[in-house]
């Protein structure tokens, strides 16, 4: 897409070197997120969702080899030096993690942790001002009595309040891109809705591009503008939300949709089988072993994303299968 993308990833590959061999966790992911847009990223556990974005932030361990390109504005992050990464992290791109309890430092006061984020990118700001700004941020994300709460520790907060703290921290420097890795998985349904509201409000007010990683297609349906489905380290389908839910062409996406619990449907039908071993990812279409429509030609070249009806789909048989839906 155009240069105006807030975040633009091209052919990202991540390989972990381990004792047992090389784990190819991400095998060529491309995507663009526009300012003010919410991109949903869904896929089963282990499909490489988290790893892709941790790689962009440069937060993976030393055993990770990252290739490809990831640009925030004009800044290339893959292979960038620590200085560049530090300038971008928390400033242009911020990340919210799944488990807010373990993601907050247990021995520092919550306000200080938010203030640290402010100070990191406002050199010369006084500590007092940063502390005031932290209280302000806590207020913005809807934490009542922010002055008092700022002096407390993470374990004194409820799950939803902790996630609000994480969001306050993430938006401290008006980032262009906000990556939320399963921000509501650990929370119960009502709190989940509140957190999503906060994220949506911030997106609207600040024009932040949001990447929303989740297992929950319901969350995607509510929040996202576009969706990207990942399987075995690759994007297998990409579309706007409406098209994906109503006219998906990839058997895996359809499986995912069918396995979601919804009102009105009696039984779930989970996708049989388990995700492939990423030490030796299968040739051709990685979904082959579990796909009800697999045919000999699926073992050939790795399928690329092509436009089929209303979605971009990486399935060699997508055209033939259209008829089945």
């Amino acid at each position: 897409m155009s240069t105006e993308s807030a975040l633009s990833i091209r052919d990202l590959r991540v390989t972990f070197k381990t004792l047992l061999g090389n784990v190819q966790a991400v095998r060529g992911v491309s995507l663009d997120v526009q300012p003010g847009e919410v991109l949903g990223v869904v896929g089963e556990s282990g499909s490489g969702k988290s790893v892709s974005f941790l790689a962009v932030m440069g937060l993976l361990g030393r055993n990770a080899v990252i290739e490809g390109s990831a640009k925030v504005g004009d800044t290339e992050l893959v292979g960038a030096n620590q200085r560049t990464l530090r300038k971008v992290r928390g400033n242009n791109v911020a990340m919210i993690f799944q488990d807010p309890l373990s993601a907050l430092n247990p021995v520092h006061r919550v306000g200080a942790q938010v203030a640290e984020m402010v100070l990191a990118h406002h050199h010369g700001m006084s500590k007092d001002d940063a502390a005031k700004r932290a209280v302000e941020l806590l207020d913005i994300v809807g934490i009542p009595q922010p002055e008092q709460r700022a002096r407390q520790y993470a374990h004194e907060f409820s799950g939803g309040m902790r996630q609000r703290v994480m969001i306050a921290m993430a938006i401290a420097n008006d980032p262009k891109v906000l990556i939320a890795d399963e921000p509501t998985t650990a929370l119960d349904v009502t709190v989940q809705a509140q957190i999503l509201e906060v994220i949506d409000r911030i997106r609207k007010e600040m024009g932040t591009a949001v990447v929303l990683i989740t297992h929950d297609l319901g969350v995607v349906a509510r929040m996202a503008d576009r969706v990207q489905v990942m399987y075995a380290g690759r994007v297998v389908e990409r579309a706007d939300v409406h098209s994906l839910f109503h006219q998906s062409d990839h058997p895996y996406t359809r499986g995912l949709l069918a396995s979601q619990p919804t009102l009105g449907r009696e039984r779930l039908s989970p996708i049989p089988g388990a995700p492939p071993n990423m030490l030796q990812p299968p040739s051709g279409c990685a979904f082959r072993v579990r796909c009800a429509h697999a045919a000999p030609e699926c073992a050939g070249d790795v399928p690329e994303l092509i436009q089929v009806r209303r979605t971009e789909t990486a399935c060699v048989r997508a055209q033939e299968l259209e008829a089945l839906v």
């Binding site: 941790l54 932030m57 937060l59 990464l85 530090r86 300038k87 971008v88 992290r89 928390g90 400033n91 911020a94 990340m95 993690f97 488990d99 373990s102 993601a103 907050l104 430092n105 247990p106 640290e116 984020m117 990191a120 990118h121 994480m166 921290m169």
Partner: peptide
């Protein structure tokens, strides 16, 4: 730990 990853993600 997760909180160290958070600390790194701040750009300090």
């Amino acid at each position: 730990s997760d909180y160290l990853r958070t600390a790194r993600s701040k750009g300090i």
